[in-house]
Design a protein around this nucleic acid. Structure first.
Length: 1180
RNA sequence: GCUCAAGUGGCGGAAUUGGUAGACGCGCUGGAUUCAAAAUCCAGUUCUUUCGGGAGUGUGGGUUCGAUUCCCACCUUGAGUACCA
């Protein structure tokens, strides 16, 4: 009986499918199976995107590893969940649809069919009854559901978790937002409960949107014009799109965003609780980018330093020592406790009775004014009794404010209370006389305003990780895009600054990235004040400061920061040294650990840690700074202008997004005629005429877009439809939970299932998802955990990144030669065309690797000479064919010249294990190779050059698993993929090597089939004397294989099997006691052959259900040891000695050995080291 | 630049609580079998050598009786990230 792997594999694959061998039950549902007593184990692969190209041998690597582990865990008595599915929304199907009109669902279904066939033939033990497809409405129903949950949640920093938005609304209406500590948009205005309750519904919705975990915002996004969509940061590589390499530009768009930044700290902390690779954790840490430091506010000096000295600085204005935080909270307090008159006037002003927007108790500079219309710069003060005692101060205050172009009008309490109509009339009159500053550009460009910072600006806030170096600040740098730049720049510097801003804006992101070394910047002419020394600090702008990080401004400490140092050197800015005993004449000193402060006032002598703490304390006392932690992690844009993705369960009323209630889900993707954006620039969904959306309360009805949008709000939904779809990572961010209860129609997954399976025990997939899928999934898991949907807040305990399998390309060298057209008088004048014709007609000449290496060192002249001497016949034949002549009268070197060699990738299937090219197959490969000639060294075969490259159609090095399974079988494929090397490593595929594992399987087969006819022959005599060696082999193997699987060292267990089979063959072992457990060891790796032999051994149950053999150390006990005897650490010979021999006896035995004497050559050893059971070392 | 990973025969790779470097396989060489080829089997295969031996795990140092393994410095390759204050 021969090892007929094709037959065996087909037989068992059919058996497993028919018997649902790998179907796993949730205990609550399958108590009868007895699974409830078994511990659970969840082994997961990253599900594939089913591309049109199908699988190549690199794809199943991780699946094979996880399958081995899953099968092993079943042998160990675990209830193993090992599912598979498809990440089936994605760009390629859509692009194919755009080109061909084929619906992506059809393409996707076809691709999935191919994938399934390919996966099945490798013999995976997946439970296909739990398959998920992200593009299936029954699945994306729940993706939409999660989106709604996110919309209805906000992040409470006090409880450090996501909470329901209804809680927030309750708080707003009972106490406003003053005490709400949430992760939300910047610049949220503060409001009271009364304010909130007075807001109209739209205003309330706008405010809530600033708190929701998924929110709509005008964001600057990465727009890819070629793909017609936005891309996430991790979808961009080197400034171009990851898919297709198209350029990407920044663009402002209204998009859905996910407030992942709320989870930055928990995502970081969570890394310590999971067993993922260090490099992957490191990537995520970098991506989150936590930095701890301080935020510091530098007041802006109103006049340049020189004028300040002249004594023109105004009193009370923007000097250091004031506390904006205190003033702000004071203003809030005053707002909350208005006087009667103030309240009465505010009631009138807020209702826009005067057609102008007023603010109450607003901070202007250092002053809190009662009411202000910022647009018209009109201040209205209501004075009580107290003002009678401070007329002078008030006058000064008015003067200062009026210098800032404010107009101040004052009313007495009595006036307001007695004649409010008259007061309003006066205000109205003033308003009408003042021009709106928005429409008056002259004003803001006037000389004076250039010198005087506008009101409301108190200082520049910076973020620094080195607050300890604050005494080293010698300038400040703002990003060119910083809001303050135009406001603070002096007239003299305006031209220079404007020119610089323009130049920076022109440079693309890529240019800026490529050109890091060039230092550029401009001085604004303005100065800030140092918080401690009160010295004026020049304010510069420079493009090394990024608008998008921190506050877009830095305090520059040239002595302690490389970039600040370079900038200071370049512009001749002083570089004060604040480090004790450090020379900064050549470079900045950025070594935190060895910092000792000097020239730093109260910090002198302190180290980094102490100084930092002290500075932050001092700044907090002054109200000019505080300890702060910054994260690089940005909120994730969640809208895509694509067709083939999840539709949002969203419509708009009055411009505000509304969720469609969960009971109406799924919102199915509508049909479109064209998959391109509409003529008006809407996303492809704008083309949809009919929607599988609903009539209110009447689920599932098809409604036309017009019908939907024009319907009356009472009967139908009414409002505009959301036309964007969700990004690719939406569906993949929670699929691992769905597998736990994949066919549940009423829930995301049942509580019982979620509680039983908890999380993924082992997750295997590529490291390319480090900052995409793996971060987003952790984010959603934490969110779902907060909401009580899932029981754990990390979804995968252990994660392994499988390395990539690379291709081994085969390269031949093509000799390029051309006619010497000047000499070929019978040719046409059009030499260009002739040359092209020639190169088409001429027979190509290919050169072998060794010949190429030989020829390539010769010069062109030598090469030509060599070719003429050795290959004149071949070349002349090519030329003659071209010229249609028998014999040209020219000598060979008069009519052609050699150009160069070009590398041609040959299909790897034409090359054998010895790198020899099948020249016939190669000639038939492409029509222009038909008459190819091959040059090789005499007596040599034609060998190709090998090169390891990524597997790609382009390089003709793609190997299809279908062919491998047909030729060698799935078991060979599985073993070989594991045998190639460590799972995590990148390694080249070379089909030639598979013969090794294939012949191993044949040898294994032979162990069970003896004699001439190879009949099944296994003896079942009880273990006898002769079984000792075989038992030793078996138990050695059990031990090693078990260790290897648990350490994911699958490559070494394959060689262990080889050793075992080689040994057992040599021992002529035919005993069932040995051969039966051996099969169980091998079955996770080569399940088909194991199942077949197991069956032949007389078992009726599948081998996958039996228990793993137990290692028994007693079989490995030895009585003697081959001691390596080394001299000065070098092993010289081996001596067999009993293991129970004492140290002294060993030494004596070794010393008396003749080889020892030989080595020593009469010298006396200085020392003899004896480690019993290990080694003897003699030091001479 | 920074972070992480890794450097061992012709090739993939094995060996770490420090103890026989090169397991296992490919390829290669020789032999058996065969009309022949494939397949199969046997022997050899780190380099060097005067056949005694000697050298050897990216380079240079160190610790140790003993280092592929630990420490320091450097070089190279791959991956990620990039003016992150």
């Amino acid at each position: 009986m021969k090892y007929n792997f094709n037959e065996i594999e087909a037989k068992w694959q059919k058996y497993w499918a028919e018997n649902q061998t790998f179907k796993v039950e949730n205990p609550a549902l399958g108590e009868a199976e007895g699974n409830s007593n078994k511990p659970k184990y969840y082994v997961l692969d990253m599900f594939p995107y089913p591309s049109g190209a199908g699988l190549h041998v690199g794809h199943p690597l991780g699946y094979i590893a996880s399958d081995i582990y899953a099968r092993y865990k079943r042998h160990q008595g675990f209830n193993v969940l090992h599912p598979q599915g498809y990440d089936s929304f994605g760009l390629p199907a859509e692009q194919y649809a755009i080109q061909t009109g084929q619906h992506p669902a059809i393409t996707t279904a076809e691709n999935i069919k191919t994938y399934r066939r390919q996966l099945d033939q490798i013999g995976f033990s997946f439970d296909w009854s739990r398959e998920v497809r992200t593009s299936d409405p029954s699945y994306y129903k729940w993706t939409q559901w999660i989106f709604i949950q996110l919309f209805n949640s906000w992040y409470n920093k006090n409880t450090d978790k996501a909470e329901d938005i209804s809680e927030l609304i309750k708080t707003f209406s009972s106490e406003g937002n003053r005490h709400v500590n949430a992760v939300c948009d910047d610049n949220i205005e503060s409001f009271s409960a009364e304010d909130w309750n007075a807001f109209d519904s739209i205003k309330q919705q706008q405010i809530l949107l600033q708190y929701r975990l998924t929110y709509l915002a005008e964001t600057e996004v990465n727009w890819c014009p070629a793909l017609g969509t936005v891309l996430a940061n991790d979808e961009i590589v080197n400034g171009v799109s990851e898919r297709g390499g198209h350029p990407v530009v920044r663009k402002k768009m209204t998009q859905w965003s996910m407030r992942i930044s709320a989870y930055a700290e928990r995502l970081l902390q969570g890394l310590d609780t999971i067993d993922w690779t260090d490099s992957l954790k490191e990537s995520q840490r970098n991506w989150i980018g936590k930095s701890v430091g301080a935020s510091v506010t530098f007041p802006i000096l109103s006049f340049p330093a020189g004028e300040e000295k002249a004594g023109t600085k105004r009193p009370g204005y923007m000097t250091g020592g004031n506390n904006s935080h205190l003033l702000l909270s004071h203003a809030k307090e005053m707002r909350a406790n208005p006087t009667l008159a103030e309240a009465a006037l505010w009631e009138q002003l807020r209702n826009k009775n005067l057609d102008a927007k007023f603010r109450q108790q607003h901070l202007i500079g250092d002053f809190i004014v009662d009411f202000v219309c910022l647009d018209k710069k009109l201040i209205v003060e209501v004075d009580g009794k107290i003002h009678e005692t401070q007329v002078e101060e008030d006058a000064k205050r008015t003067e200062i404010l009026e210098n800032d172009f404010y107009k101040v009008i004052r009313f007495k309490n009595e006036e307001v209370l007695g004649n409010i109509e008259g007061v309003l009339e006066k205000i109205k009159k003033e308003l009408s006389q003042r021009e709106s500053i928005k429409s008056n550009s002259e004003l803001s460009e006037s000389h004076l305003s250039e010198q005087i910072p506008p009101s409301g600006v108190r200082g520049i806030e910076v973020f620094t990780t080195r607050p300890d170096t604050i005494f080293g600040v010698s300038f400040m740098t703002l990003a060119p895009e910083h809001d303050l730049v135009t406001q603070i720049t002096t007239l003299e510097q305006k031209a220079e600054v404007d020119a610089y801003i323009l130049a920076t804006a022109k440079r693309s992101e890529r240019d800026r990235m490529a050109d890091v070394k060039t230092i550029s910047g401009a001085f604004t002419g303005a100065y800030a004040e140092h918080p401690f020394t009160k010295a004026p600090i020049p304010i510069w702008i420079g493009d090394y400061v990024l608008a998008g990080y921190g506050t877009g401004a830095v305090m520059s400490v040239p002595c302690g920061d490389e970039r600040d140092y370079a900038f200071a050197k370049h512009f001749n800015i002083p570089i004060p040294n604040i480090f004790d005993g450090v020379d900064i004449s050549k470079e900045a000193f950025a070594d935190k650990a060895n910092t000792k402060m000097a020239n730093s006032d109260f910090l002198n002598g302190m180290n980094y840690k102490k100084a930092t703490k002290r500075v932050i304390y001092e700044l907090e006392q002054m109200g000019q700074g505080e300890g702060k932690t910054n994260y690089r992690l940005r909120d994730a844009v969640f809208s895509r202008q694509r067709y083939w993705g999840e539709p949002f369960p969203v419509y708009y009323m009055n411009g505000m997004p509304q969720m469609i209630e969960a009971e109406h889900l799924p919102i199915k993707l509508p049909e479109v005629e064209k998959y391109l954006p509409t003529e008006t620039g809407e996303p492809p969904l704008g083309n949809a005429k009919k929607w599988y959306w609903l009539q209110y309360g009447n689920k599932g009805e098809i409604v036309s877009k017009e019908e939907f949008e024009n319907s009356s709000p009472s009967g139908r939904l009414g409002g505009a439809l959301e036309l964007n779809t969700m990004p690719g990572w939406a569906g993949s961010s929670w699929y691992f939970n769905r597998y736990m209860d994949a066919n549940n129609n009423s829930e995301f997954a049942s509580k019982e299932a979620l509680n039983y399976w908890q999380d993924v025990d082992l997750y295997i997939g590529g490291s390319e998802h480090a900052t995409g899928h793996l971060l987003y999934s952790r984010f959603w898991q934490k969110f779902l955990f907060d909401k009580g949907v899932v029981p754990v807040d990390e979804f995968a305990k252990k994660l392994i990144n499988q390395g990539m399998i690379l291709g081994t390309s085969a390269i031949v060298y093509r000799l390029e030669y051309e006619p010497n057209l000047n000499n070929l008088d019978n040719l046409n004048d059009d030499s260009q065309a002739e040359s092209e014709k020639f190169s088409l007609m001429v027979k190509p000449i290919f050169i072998s690797k060794s010949q190429y290496e030989r020829l390539n060192v010769l010069g062109v002249y030598e090469l030509k000479k060599y070719l003429n001497e050795n290959y004149e016949k071949e070349i002349r034949k090519g030329l003659n064919d071209f010229m249609n002549k028998e014999n040209s009268h020219f000598s060979i070197d008069e009519i052609y010249h050699v150009n160069k060699f070009t590398e041609i990738h040959a299909d790897v299937s034409f090359v054998n294990a010895s790198d020899e090219l099948d020249t016939e197959a190669f000639k038939n490969w492409r029509p222009d190779f038909k008459g190819a000639q091959f040059i090789r060294e005499e007596g040599e075969t034609f060998k190709v050059k090998r090169e390891v490259e990524k597997m790609s159609k382009r390089w003709f090095n793609v190997v299809n698993p279908d062919n491998i399974c047909e030729q060698y079988g799935a078991d060979s494929l599985r073993l070989y993929e594991m045998f190639l090397g460590p799972l995590e490593q990148y390694k080249p595929w070379n089909t030639a090597g598979i013969t090794g594992v294939h012949s191993f399987l044949k040898k294994l087969w032979k162990l069970y089939h003896q004699g001439e006819n190879r009949n099944f022959y296994v003896t079942s005599t009880p273990p006898s004397e002769g079984l000792g060696e075989a038992l030793k082999t078996l138990h050695k193997t059990i031990k090693k294989v078990q260790e290897d699987i648990e350490n994911f060292s699958f490559n070494t267990s394959v060689s262990t099997f080889m050793i075992a089979v080689n040994e057992l063959t040599a021992q002529k072992c035919t005993n069932k006691e040995i051969l039966e457990p051996l099969l169980i060891l091998i079955s996770p790796y080569a399940p088909h052959i194991a199942e077949e032999l197991w069956n032949q051994l007389g078992h009726s149950e599948s081998i996958s259900t039996v228990a793993f053999p137990i290692f028994d150390a007693s079989h490995l006990v030895e009585s003697s040891k081959n001691y390596p005897i080394s001299f000065n650490g070098k092993m010289r010979f081996i001596m067999e000695l009993p293991l129970d021999m004492s140290k002294d006896a060993i030494e004596a035995a070794v010393m008396s050995h003749e080889k020892t004497q030989e080595q020593l050559q009469g010298r006396k050893p200085k020392k003899v080291i004896v480690v019993p059971g290990k080694i003897v070392n003699i030091v001479g």
